[in-house]
Structures are given as structure tokens and as C-alpha cells.
Amino acid sequence: MNAVLRRVLVWAALMVLLAITLGAAFLPLGAARPWIAYGIATAKAALILWFFMELRREGGLVRLAAIAGFVWLTILFTLTAADYLTRFWTG
């Protein structure tokens, strides 16, 4: 596939995801809303990392370096949230 065309298609996909996440924000989905919003954000970030930042062309080590920051953030968020979510379980 033409390299430029592929990038334009990825861009189009990003725009569609943006439209979906915007629409979903107005739907009465309750507690699922933030999950959907962040799920779509993750999908967008993945598209950017994979195609625009060209991780698809790189080896395992470089991919590892690129996602290390995100993995570490997950640690930070998970364990911090573990505190905030369970702090009031005991009176």
C-alpha cells in the first residue's frame, strides 16, 4: 500500500474514533462512560504509536522502550487507585 495513503487512512480512523468517543460521552452509559472514553483514547494512542511513530517497523527492544513509560504509569495508577477506592471500606 502507498505509504502516504496508509497514513491518511490511519488519520481517518483516528477521526472516526474521535467522533465515536464524542458521541458516547452523551449517551447514558453510567459508570461505563469513563471506561469507554479511556478505551478509545488508548486505541487512538496505539494507532499513533504503531503507525505514525512507526513502531511497526521496529524490533522488540525499541517497542519495549516505547511502551515502558505507559506500563509504569499503569503501575502508578493501579496502586494509587487501590488506595483511594478501598480507603472507606472500613468505617
Binding site: 522502550a65 515502558a68 513509560g69 509504569w72 504509569l73 495508577f77 487507585a81 483511594y84 477506592l85
Partner: peptide, 26 residues
């Protein structure tokens, strides 16, 4: 370069963690 970018990601991580804590509490 990517290693530096991972470092940048962590810089914003603190802000996001603060937002997360705020959202969970209120």
C-alpha cells in the same frame, strides 16, 4: 529518543494521577 519520550510520559503521569485521585474522591 524513545527513552526520553518515556520520561516525558512519566512527567505527565503525575498530573494524570492527581486528576484520577480527584475524580475518585469527588
Amino acid at each position: 529518543m524513545l527513552v526520553f519520550l518515556a520520561s516525558e510520559v512519566m512527567l505527565f503521569g503525575g498530573i494524570f494521577a492527581a486528576a484520577l485521585a480527584l475524580r475518585l474522591e469527588h
